[in-house]
Structure formats: C-alpha cells, structure tokens
Amino acid sequence: MSNIVLKGLSKVYAEGETEEVRAVNGIDLEIEKGEFLAIVGPSGSGKSTLLNLVGGLDVPTEGHVLIDGRDTQGLSEKELTRIRREKIGFVFQEFNLLPVLNASENVQLPLRYLKVGTRERERRAAEALELVGLSKRARNRPSQLSGGERQRVAIARALVTGPALVLADEPTGELDTVNTCRIIEVMRKLNDTLNQTFAIVTHDPMVAAYTSRVITLRDGQVESDLAQAAADLHCDDGETI
C-alpha cells in the first residue's frame, strides 16, 4: 500500500506581475511506506517546495497529494494541522528552534501539541536527545549550542513523536562526517525497526549513497528516480554498522 502519491503536482509562484516561477512543475511520484529515500538536485530545483507540499505546509497550485490514499486537497487548515501533528516530523533547512526554550523543551514541543503529559514528554525528549548524542546539552538554550548541535536538536524534535513520515530538508548540512554518519545510522535504524518513512533532501553524495532510492530534481521536475542498494555505513570512528 502506498503511503504517499503525488499526481501532476505543481507549485507556481507569481513573481512580480509578469514572471512566474514554476518551483514544482508537474511531478508524479509514489512513495511506499517504509522507504528510505533521498531527494537531490541543484539549488532552486524545487526540493524544499516539494517537501512543503508533501507535508501539507503549502497547498499546490495544481495536482494532488494523497496521504494513505486520502487526497489532501480540500482538507481544512485544521485537518492539515492534525495530519502534520500526528503523522509527520519535519526537519527544516534552517533549524527553527525557539530561542527561549532549552534543547529538551524544544524537542518536547510537538509532544505538547499532542497533549502528552509532562513526565512522558520529558522522558521521550531525553530519549530523542540521547539518540542524536546530545543528552549533555538538554538544558542549554539554542544560543549556547553550535550549528551542528542545533541541527541535531531539530532532528530530535522531528523524531520524538515517532511520526510515520519524516521529511528532512538538508538535515546534515551543518554536521561533520562522523555526526552525519551517526544521524543517518539513527534514521536507518528507525526505518528498519519502526518502518518509518524517510524523505531526505541532501547535497551530500555520501548521504544519498546510504539511501535506497535517489530522486533527482531539476527545474521543478523529476530528472531521474533511481532505486539502489543502500551503501553500508562506515562511520569514521572505525565501527561498521
């Protein structure tokens, strides 16, 4: 059964009065439940826009997004919010942490919106931070964290609810090789054990290599869509996973 189906999906930005930008231009795609895929392509090719459309953050100009067979077109803002809250975890290109909350509180935020109790929230946030290797930084505010650490907090926030679908926009852009490897390792493990779907936008060929499907975008269209055998992870500290 398909998790996500995109049909003739387009997003047009009317730039000024005459020029219009077709950020996403007629994309048809199927993403199975439990896939681990990468979306690559040059800057401006529509990767972020596509992710926003799939995640119900943005509405398409044309075409349809079906989540679990259900067309999101015509859903109210409230219903879209609910889908985002219950099914989707976002990692944004800019990590978008709240400056007044510490790392743990930032990670707890989606659980708060799911009305999870304080204790359970704290427990699960600690677990998610442990997963990304930031247990020691739980009480630090974003301003006290490095770029890489902030990115990992943002990843923990996306994973903490155990969403069926994780949409990650350049989640490893600020990470060194070792941490990139570890994050991908965590994601793959979750993908294996919980069958969560991962769609990862990336510029990093190493990250793409670790996935089992690579979708390449150019000018808002799918240039290529290739299945592959995911490379084995060899994180720098010598361990093979």
């Binding site: 995640g55 953050l57 803002e77 409230k78 919010t81 609910r82 985002r84 809250r85 219950e86 976002f90 944004f92 978008n96 709240l98 400056p99 935020l109 989606p110 919106y113 799911l114 926030r157």
Partner: peptide
C-alpha cells in the same frame, strides 16, 4: 513570525 510558523508547522492549532 518565524517561530509562530514553526509551531504551526509542527502541529500547533490556531487556537493554541
């Protein structure tokens, strides 16, 4: 504005 957008994106209701 950005923070509000973030909250909405990760599932905060308008009423929240």
């Amino acid at each position: 504005t950005r923070e509000i957008g973030l909250k909405r994106a990760i599932g905060a209701e308008t009423n929240t």
